[in-house]
Amino acid sequence: MTPVATPFFFYLLSGLALLGGILVITRKNAVHSALALILTLLALAGLYLMLYAPFVAGVQIILYAGGIMVLFLFVIMLVSIEKSQREDQFNKQWIGGLVGAVALGALFVRVFVRSKALHDLTGMPMAQLPEQSNTQEIAVYLYGNYMLAFEIASLLLLVAIIGAVVMAKKRI
């Protein structure tokens, strides 16, 4: 089907992602920050859906919002909130942060302008994956074209898991 109200949903989701991101760094309560981060991640999943990448959106929800953030919350909830609120906040480097943010923003604007110019120049159509077979296409790439790199990455993760277990347990 043809997309409905694309600009509206794009600005809505981007706005939510930005709002969540700002709340993450401005909330003093760590649990509120984590919840704001979940809002950002879900808005990003929505943006992936708009980019005809349903598989990435689904994985984003399952892994980040449903898995990793739950573990985050699990740890944060065990920390005494009152005590951590009385301690010094690490916001002394706001000048450095501001410079970094401006530099990164300038880079993004530059890339956007340049790619738009290139696109107008060459007149190439935007690449668009068919939504109906998105998962199958990803599978073909992961397990066909980039099989070796994919397996090496999974082996790396396995090593990291074993390392974590070894460091966490005194006696195995």
């Binding site: 349903p54 449903g66 939504e131 077979s133 998105n134 998962t135």
Partner: peptide
């Protein structure tokens, strides 16, 4: 296209 994945993901929320 991601039916089952969608259901598992949303219910995991």
């Amino acid at each position: 296209n991601i039916g089952v994945l969608f259901m598992l993901g949303v219910s995991s929320l």
